[in-house]
């Protein structure tokens, strides 16, 4: 019944592919503790789209060019292509200021004058995609996923132990830069589906849950992707059943819900484990005391 509507089919197809890309890239974003960089890139995407709209370019092209450039700049600014948070923060604040400038020009040019264009870029319009938009986003999501899987092994090595990887001849800096560029691509891709501001939910929450559940990389990548896709399906279904609830909020709500459940479940398990361990130590005498 839900699938009878074309807008719903389009939303599900796009959402699924975007979620796969976000889940895969998000796993490394969390591993490398670069969620802030993803956050900044999502805001850069917003500014890029508005800038293109104001200057009269194709919004999609503007979005991609600006966001990918943002990723490269952040990679170049930071040490070892792992931009530090103060540098990102300053760049980011300026990007927001530029976004405000374009928004004010855009709202003035808009005959309606209420700046809903800005809202659409910020929060996405997944129920308003046409066939061409679906095709573009599916292709780009596939491209991003393929690129990530291609560099997954060396990137994993470089992320876990940069010094040893560099000594073994892995191009750590180039990989870091490439990864931020890829992150820019995914940020631009996802911001047209779930909106620039909500992309963060698909990057951070499913991957955070996956990292919490397993330390094994390939299982983690798979889990992260499954969680991201699941959140999109759950969120879109909820939003379809209750039309007053906006889809992007529901998708992010589902993703954060999964993460919170994982945290609670693992905390309970670890709590009972450490209680067992502690009682075990106490039985053996002073061993537990000295450990504490």
């Amino acid at each position: 019944m839900m699938l009878a509507h074309e807008f719903m089919r389009n939303a599900l197809i796009t959402g699924t592919f975007v979620a796969v890309a976000c889940g895969l890239v998000g796993y490394f974003v969390v591993l490398r503790a670069q969620v802030f960089a993803g956050d900044a890139l999502s805001h850069i995407a917003f500014t890029g789209a508005l800038a293109a709209a104001v200057l009269g370019f194709d919004t999609l092209a503007g979005l991609f060019v600006v966001t990918i450039l943002g990723g490269i700049v952040m990679g170049l600014l930071g040490d070892r292509a792992r931009a530090d948070d103060v540098t990102i923060g300053s760049l980011f604040a300026w990007t927001l200021g530029l976004g405000v400038l374009f928004l004010s020009i855009f709202a003035r040019g808009d005959s309606a004058g209420n700046g809903t264009g800005g809202v659409r870029v910020l929060f996405g319009s997944i129920f308003g995609l046409d066939a061409a938009a679906v095709r573009t986003s599916v292709l780009l999501a596939l491209l991003a996923s393929a690129l990530l899987l291609a560099i997954a092994r060396p990137l994993l090595y470089a992320s876990l132990d940069a010094a040893v990887a560099a000594a073994q001849g892995v191009p750590v800096r180039v990989l870091g830069l490439g990864f931020l560029t890829l992150l820019g691509l995914v940020a631009a891709e996802a911001s047209q589906a779930v909106g620039a501001l909500l992309l963060l939910g698909l990057l951070a929450a499913p991957a955070g849950a996956a990292h919490r559940l397993t330390a094994r990389p390939y299982r983690g990548l798979l889990l992260s992707t499954v969680f991201a896709v699941g959140s999109v399906w759950l969120g879109l279904t909820l939003s379809y059943r209750f039309p007053t609830l906006p889809p992007s909020s529901m998708v992010v709500g589902a993703a954060v819900g999964i993460y919170a459940l994982t945290l609670a479940a693992t905390a309970a398990r670890r709590g009972s484990l450490s209680r067992e361990a502690r009682s075990g130590f106490d039985a053996e005498g002073s061993l537990g005391r000295s450990e504490a």
Binding site: L197, M250, A255
Partner: peptide
């Protein structure tokens, strides 16, 4: 970083 990001995404949502 994952928890902070998720919290922020939740706030926006």
């Amino acid at each position: 970083s994952a928890s902070i990001g998720s919290l922020q995404a939740l706030a926006l949502a």
